[in-house]
């Protein structure tokens, strides 16, 4: 999948993110080196508070007050204006948040259509696109519900539909299935995997080790650093290729190290 020909989508060099100052100073990310190729499906695991969300925020350009290097599509983000960053978020990145983060005063379809506003699509086109998206998540008949009229699982599916509506090249998902039962989780994962097969890059945080089977690479984090980094073939590819799991990078990471959660 990850051909060495094309330049990597994401390169992190000694990335650090500090919160607070003085005594309260704390590195949520503490020297991360990471290269992500186009089309990878990465699952990030790790104990609560180890910096997974912070990493996703940095990757998604929500937080550019960082130390170290972050190159997106070969360009250092340090030189991107706020406006340019917003444009990248609008056109290249899809966010699925840890909490659903739906806008409570907008109905389901308007929530899903939200990212399209900033792409400059007409209202009709937005509604059409959002409606199609919702139907593929089996939420077609919930279009005009308000978020508070939905179950937690439905809300998260709306949130995912919203993240995918602008056809982002990179999808950042923070525990996208955290609030879904296992059947619903697998529907979502199937959806993500389809996107992956279309060539999208997916970076997903999860606490559920079962779901890492969909990923092509599993990273575990600990105290703001990468603990293990395991390359593997995703479920779908495994059926089509005969290659065995190829494990690279840190020698100690020959297996996916499981961290206990919470």
């Amino acid at each position: 999948m990850s051909d060495t020909k094309t330049p990597p989508v994401i390169v992190l060099k000694q990335l650090k993110k500090r919160f607070g100052i003085g005594d309260a100073e704390h590195y949520a990310l503490d020297g991360i080196n990471l290269t992500i190729q186009k089309g990878e499906f990465i699952a990030i695991m790790g104990p609560s508070g180890c910096g997974k969300t912070t990493l996703l925020n940095v990757l998604g350009l929500l937080d550019s007050h960082i130390e170290g290097e972050y190159e997106l599509d070969g360009k250092s983000i340090a030189y991107l204006s706020a406006k340019r960053q917003a444009r990248i978020r609008s056109q290249q990145i899809g966010f699925v948040f840890q909490s659903f983060n739906l806008v409570s005063r907008l109905n389901v379809i308007d929530n899903v259509a939200l990212p399209l506003i900033y792409k400059g699509m007409t209202k009709l086109a937005r509604q059409k696109k959002a409606s199609t998206m919702l139907r593929s998540f089996h939420l077609g008949e919930r279009e005009f519900y308000m978020p508070n009229q939905l179950s937690g699982g439905q809300m998260q599916r709306v949130a995912i539909a919203r993240a995918l509506v602008n056809d982002p090249a990179i999808i950042l998902a923070d525990e996208p299935t955290g609030n879904l039962d296992s059947r619903a989780s697998h529907i979502i994962m199937q959806e993500l995997s389809d996107l992956h097969k279309q060539g999208n890059t997916i970076i997903m945080v999860t606490h559920n080790p079962d779901l890492t089977t969909y990923a092509s690479r599993v990273i575990t984090m600990l105290d703001g650093q990468i603990d293990t980094d395991t390359f593997r073939l995703p479920l779908q590819s495994r059926t089509s290729t005969k290659k065995p799991l190829n494990i690279v990078k840190k020698p100690k990471a020959s297996t996916t190290k499981k961290k206990d959660k919470k």
């Binding site: 917003a86 948040f97 900033y118 919203r162």
Partner: peptide, 16 residues
Amino acid sequence: TREIGIRKALGATNSD
């Protein structure tokens, strides 16, 4: 505030 954060994450610029 939260809505503003969401909108920004989804691509809204400051001028939006």
